[in-house]
Design a protein around this nucleic acid. Structure first.
Lengths: 210, 210
DNA sequence: ATGCGAAAGTTAACACTGTCAACATCGAGA
DNA sequence: TCTCGATGTTGACAGTGTTAACTTTCGCAT
């Protein structure tokens, strides 16, 4: 049970709710989730959260938003730590997969249909764009090497970007839902699969350095 | 409301429940779904379905299973209609994406965490394997062309298979959740992205015929 | 044909959920 | 100091999945 309340007003109830709710999602997933449970754990009445969130969905959006921000940090670190283009692309992808593996329930929520599609949550959409930024930068660099004359906004460019986004998300999903049953270490398989998708035999050593 | 009941026993209540539940999932998704609603629509008491399903989850598993069977048919048709390997691979992928686009809510359920991970539903797992069979056949053919000497069970082979599976699933997800905002026709973009992933410039015309 | 046990369907109830309206309390600024 | 908006509470409502106990019907052995 939560600690006794010291004052009538909490101080930062909104932050506390997001924090506790995130823990609960991580522990039990959406199935065992309940607004009343978090309220109790924070030590506040069942309906207090309606002063900070219009409804459950809005709280979920806030949780997902923080998830994308955390993912952004991991991606940026991986991006900054490598200068070899291929290796950097793989490592950003692996950071993505590691995040999904370590926070499966949170990852599921981040792509849940009830909030993912909703244009209403602009902050969430921004955070998501931010999280895919480094993957997009790598895609653009690879595309420029492959098709130096292609226009940046071409269909070719767009499909290359989507390709990488879809691949990591697909790998993360299959992994989380337990649909990849491999005899080898999962991490090794993931790395192999990512590099498999990045075969650029025509890249020289110097071209790979960025 | 459902039509009046003629007999005490329904005859094929299990089938009727799956059918009506599938329609409801298609129309409203998991959010608006309710066991009581389907029971009412079938014209039976709220708890009648517990004689055929242990719980809601088991009903979901049955719905998902039928979804994978329908998807299998579409995939097989696409597979049988093409002899060019690249084209066949693309068309099987497009059949997959079309199915997801036409049945977004059903598709989401088919990959829902509550049932996807559960080893308990062996029929569901079989149906899923069946649905990915044709994609796997294409992957194997492509791998044999690329690495004729690789062993069928190698890590290389496995990663190639997973690669294609992850890609179509990732594309379907991003598409369904509205995360692909493109100025071009979605279908065209999807086809372009799929073929982008299949670049085998070293394949001769005759090699592509299977 | 008959009777009986299992299969299939019903009724009533339970604990739990998200949400709302009305009320209580606190804090900051006039 | 007064006041009003922001914040938190109480009580309630409709709806949910699920269980236990009961009733009806069907299929089968005698």
């Amino acid at each position: 049970m939560g600690r006794a309340k010291l004052t009538y007003h909490h101080g930062d109830l909104k932050g506390a709710l997001i924090s506790v709710a995130t823990e609960m999602i991580a522990a039990e997933g959406q199935a065992g989730f309940s607004l009343r449970k978090i309220a109790q754990q924070v030590g506040v009445s069942q309906t207090a959260l309606y002063r900070h969130f219009a409804n459950k969905e809005e709280l979920f959006a806030a949780i997902a938003e923080q998830g994308f921000l955390r993912l952004s940090e991991k991606s940026q670190q991986a991006f900054d730590n490598h200068s070899d283009l291929i290796e950097r692309t793989i490592e950003v992808g692996m950071a993505y997969l590691d995040f999904a593996a370590e926070n499966p329930n949170l990852y599921r929520l981040m792509f849940d249909s009830s909030i993912a599609d909703n244009q209403r949550y602009t902050a969430l959409a921004d955070a998501r764009r931010q999280a895919f930024k480094y993957s997009a930068l790598n895609s653009a660099a690879l595309r420029r090497l492959r098709d130096p004359d292609a226009e940046p906004d071409s269909l070719q460019a767009e499909s290359t970007k989507i390709l990488s986004q879809a691949l990591v998300h697909g790998l993360a999903s299959l992994m989380i839902e337990g649909m990849i049953h491999s005899r080898v270490e999962r991490k090794e398989l993931m790395r192999k699969t990512l590099s498999e998708s990045l075969r650029f035999p025509w890249l020289t050593e110097s071209e790979r350095q960025v």
